[in-house]
Design a protein around this nucleic acid. Structure first.
Lengths: 173, 173
DNA sequence: TTTTCCATGTAACTCGTTACATGATTTC
DNA sequence: GAAATCATGTAACGAGTTACATGGAAAA
């Protein structure tokens, strides 16, 4: 499993014991900006971490709800978490921009069409930025992620505007 | 196959007929900022595109070199390419930041250590930026990708500096 | 009463990577 | 003569997704 997903699950469990459903819900709600983790994948990974001895599960039940597997870090898990964390903090992972591929081939379309298409992209981007800016403030480190997202989207928007601006006065190749 | 990889291969072949080795080399050299495509994967995908009738292969040989499969777009491939291109240009694909996961859990380490680790990350980031800035200018649209990369890395660096700055005067939670 | 929520999981599948195999050819 | 380059491919593997199955409880 990728080091990010591993770090994510161990990190959340290090803050608080949780069951799979709960973990997935939290990630979807508050961390969709940095990870995308499907429900089945979450369960699968928790199983795996348990088999590796990094977390322990214990069955709990509350009222008449379905029983849940609550996970907690083992000492080995805690140590592993800290190592992953150090590695993650010390590393810069370059981001990829799949949207650039289209730009690389934009010459294949007539200028007015490129312009219209990029305007559509711009709208989507601006909307994402507005959504991020309206996110209510969060506690501690989660707030950091939101601010990062905003800073990034602002930079993207400025860049895209520059591209659109220059579209008009390009010499045909 | 993901729409980006498909667009990438069709787009390159639309500009010029090429064989697998050549395609892979070009991508590695000039487009590593937006895609990572392994050699075997390139061959595999070309096969697949051929089976789908989007490209045609013909064997060529030059001197005593090993024979090569040179690919060219079919009319269907050309049409498909244009559709993918339109879709790509009109869409904003949100970027993910796996480096944020570590930040979300940074409270688990003592402040001086976080500081040191983030300084290491900063160095790597600054180096990537310097490398991007020293890239010799390219023709047409490829230049766009480089400029995007630079703008993005500058924004990332500014943000990271802000984070490091604020590290000192955080109240312990 | 139908839908949504809680809670977990399995089986089949796709995508992509790794590692390996081949073999001639040019460069050191 | 050894290493790197050109050129293609296969087989095995791994990670992750999709679609599905289950079943009670709460909400509409």
């Amino acid at each position: 499993m990728s080091m990010e997903r591993e770090l994510l699950l161990l990190g959340l469990l290090q803050q608080q014991d949780m069951h799979g459903y709960q973990l997935h819900e939290f990630i979807e709600r508050y961390m969709q900006s940095c990870v995308d983790l499907k429900k089945s994948t979450a369960y699968y990974l928790l199983d795996k971490l348990a088999k590796e001895g990094l977390i322990l599960s214990s069955e709990e039940r509350e009222g008449n709800r379905p029983p849940r597997q609550v996970y907690k870090l083992t000492p080995a898990g805690q140590a592993h978490f800290l190592n992953l964390l150090r590695q993650n903090l010390a590393t810069h992972l370059p981001a990829r921009f799949p949207g650039d591929i289209g730009l690389a081939f934009a010459d294949s379309l007539p200028l007015p069409e490129i312009h219209a298409l990029l305007q559509t992209r711009r709208s989507a981007l601006a909307e994402a930025l507005a959504a991020a800016e309206q996110t209510p403030p969060h506690t501690g480190s989660l707030q950091l992620l939101i601010e990062h997202q905003i800073a990034h989207l602002q930079s993207e928007l400025a860049w895209l505007d520059g591209v659109i601006d220059r579209l008009g006065h390009t010499k045909p190749g």
